[in-house]
Write a protein that binds this DNA or RNA. Structure first.
Length: 229
DNA sequence: TATTGATCATGC
DNA sequence: GCATGATCAATA
């Protein structure tokens, strides 16, 4: 999504240090302040504008991918993810990673996968969340520029290989969000009637609900518990 | 109440 | 339709 941001965004950061400095400068600021600077009127809540916070932070930091299948900061190869934190500092929601190409999921290596590329370098920007907290009052927290530790990448890879393997074998019907210790497969569509291309166990084309990879909250919590991990 | 499955908005 | 940005809300 792309909100109707009226004000001019800052130029894309040229170095990771510059990006991180900008992100740190956002700590303590509110979504209301960002909305004002961007020149937009905030919606009353996020029910109809679920991506509004992500859009505002993208704008404030100078993300330049603009809806393309590329890192948010194209020159730096850094992906931006805002993450809602509850009162206890724990993630309140899972994190969408990418959609899954269901018709050729078995033909790829982890290292070349979209999931791996998206997660190779991520700037996590935590934002206070909770239905009791008005959108404009939600504060931005301390950003973390992250690369998976060896253990984290191994866990991600194991889940990805298991899930991609099942999809590649046409076992999509057996995949639920219960699978995967850190990475899970869930629907990613406008509604449950949407169909996309996949393959059955015999390799024949079938139409099914589009899916995406998501990070469990227990995994993203480890990002903030071990910034250097 | 945590989690899974479903959904909302927008651009091309 | 699929990519971007995610959160909602029914259910276990």
């Amino acid at each position: 999504m792309r909100a109707a941001l009226k004000a001019t965004a800052p130029a894309a950061p040229r170095t990771e240090a510059q990006l991180l400095a900008r992100a740190h400068a956002l700590a303590g600021r509110t979504i209301g302040e960002l909305g004002g600077e961007a020149g937009i009127a905030l919606p009353p809540d996020t029910r109809r504008d679920k991506g509004i916070i992500g859009d505002l932070v993208e704008w404030a930091l100078g993300a330049d991918a603009g809806g393309a299948d590329a890192p948010d900061f194209t020159e730096l190869g850094v992906e931006l993810k805002t993450i809602p934190l509850g009162p206890g500092g724990k993630p309140k929601e899972s994190t969408f990673v990418c959609t899954i190409h269901l018709d050729d999921a078995g033909d790829l290596e982890w290292a070349q996968s979209r999931a791996c590329r998206k997660l190779a370098r991520v700037l996590w920007v935590p934002v206070e969340a909770g239905p009791e907290l008005p959108l404009a009052q939600r504060r931005i927290g301390a950003a973390v520029l992250w690369t998976p530790s060896e253990a984290q990448e191994a866990a991600l890879r194991a889940d990805w290989e298991e899930l991609s393997g099942l999809i590649g074998e046409g076992q999509l019907d057996q995949i639920t969000a219960h699978l995967g210790a850190c990475l899970q497969v869930r629907p990613k569509a406008a509604n449950a009637r949407v169909r996309g291309n996949a393959r059955d166990a015999g390799g024949a084309p079938v139409r099914t609900l589009p899916r995406g990879f998501y990070l469990r909250t227990s995994f993203t919590a480890s990002v903030f518990a071990e910034p250097d991990a």
